[in-house]
Simulated assay, not measured.
Amino acid sequence: MDTVIYITSTGDRAAPGNGHLLHGELMLAPHTLVFDINDACTGFVRSVILGNSLIASGTSKAILIVISDTYSKLYEDSNLRVSPLFSDGASAIILTADALTIPGIRHPSRKWEILSSTVISEGNHADDLTVTRGNEHFPFGELEMNGAGVFNFVVKHVKSAVAGAVTRAGLGHDEIDSWYIHQGSRAVVDAVSKSLSLDQDAQFVSREYGNVVGSAIPFQILAETAGMTETELFGSEGRYLFLLAFGVGLTLAGLTIRQSRG
């Protein structure tokens, strides 16, 4: 690895970030480029955008992307606005110029060609989903959410953002083989699915593990891939994926990807 991108909003320390702590644990080379990024729900999608740019520029050749969030320490179980939704999770992928590898998957590496991306940020609505500074009661900070505000932000932007990205990729909506939607809540996933004319039941898959923040999409990819044959995974000429995440910021990020054999 010549680059590490570590995404979390629940880091172990104020500084240094978890990326540098991981660099030490793995005993990586001193010249390794390390990014510590304070991000949450859109962190995976945006880290792939960043990683792709680093590889395209020649800055990096092999990138370890790690996403981890421990939101259970940010709320009490009695807080029913957030406790039924969030849970802890971590994931990792390896990006190179030729392939993407997900550790633990039995299938061969895959090649992800990014055809288009979309990013929306509305910092003026940051208070709708935020983690406060630590205090006596919540030493790691407290998770606060205005569910209606987040819902309205997503519904406001999702249809036009996705349509624009798919069109820029030179595809039609019905040519996307797999949709991976951030598992914010059943209500928001259903709203997104309805807006995009997708099967609502098929898109909400996190019943067993909840909203694992930045790892929600990697969890979905792992779950779907585990049951696929190589033919189903790659198709004869590749498969088209759309990754869509939204959350803290408030932000929305999407990627249109062509997946083929690595």
Score class of each variant (00 low, 15 high):
190 D>V: 04
156 K>I: 00
152 N>V: 06
145 M>E: 02
117 S>H: 12
154 V>K: 00
124 N>F: 03
179 W>S: 04
184 G>C: 14
110 R>I: 00
142 E>K: 15
170 G>S: 06
116 S>I: 12
118 T>Q: 05
178 S>I: 05
169 A>C: 10
190 D>W: 07
115 L>Y: 11
145 M>N: 01
181 I>A: 08
119 V>F: 13
125 H>Y: 14
177 D>P: 13
148 A>S: 14
163 A>F: 05
111 K>E: 00
123 G>R: 04
129 L>I: 13
171 L>I: 04
144 E>S: 12
124 N>K: 04
176 I>L: 04
168 R>V: 04
126 A>K: 02
143 L>W: 10
167 T>A: 14
172 G>T: 04
129 L>H: 09
162 V>I: 10
190 D>F: 12
131 V>S: 09
160 S>W: 04
125 H>L: 15
187 A>H: 13
147 G>S: 06
138 F>R: 06
122 E>A: 11
141 G>I: 13
182 H>E: 01
127 D>S: 15
113 E>G: 01
155 V>I: 13
160 S>Y: 07
187 A>M: 12
127 D>L: 14
109 S>M: 02
178 S>G: 12
132 T>P: 02
141 G>V: 11
141 G>C: 09
151 F>V: 14
128 D>I: 00
141 G>H: 07
141 G>A: 12
169 A>Y: 03
127 D>G: 06
132 T>Y: 15
174 D>M: 05
130 T>W: 05
171 L>W: 05
123 G>D: 08
145 M>G: 15
144 E>F: 07
153 F>Y: 15
117 S>R: 09
145 M>S: 13
152 N>T: 07
173 H>T: 10
184 G>E: 02
152 N>Q: 15
121 S>H: 04
126 A>F: 07
144 E>V: 12
110 R>A: 03
154 V>D: 02
140 F>P: 01
180 Y>K: 03
153 F>Q: 02
148 A>K: 15
136 E>H: 11
150 V>K: 14
186 R>T: 06
142 E>H: 13
130 T>D: 06
187 A>C: 13
140 F>A: 15
190 D>T: 06
121 S>I: 11
117 S>A: 07
121 S>G: 01
173 H>R: 07
183 Q>N: 04
148 A>W: 08
142 E>N: 11
146 N>R: 03
173 H>I: 03
131 V>M: 08
165 A>K: 05
187 A>G: 02
173 H>S: 07
114 I>F: 02
135 N>W: 13
164 G>I: 00
183 Q>T: 07
145 M>C: 12
130 T>L: 13
177 D>E: 10
112 W>A: 01
126 A>N: 06
129 L>G: 07
124 N>A: 15
138 F>C: 10
166 V>L: 08
122 E>I: 07
122 E>S: 09
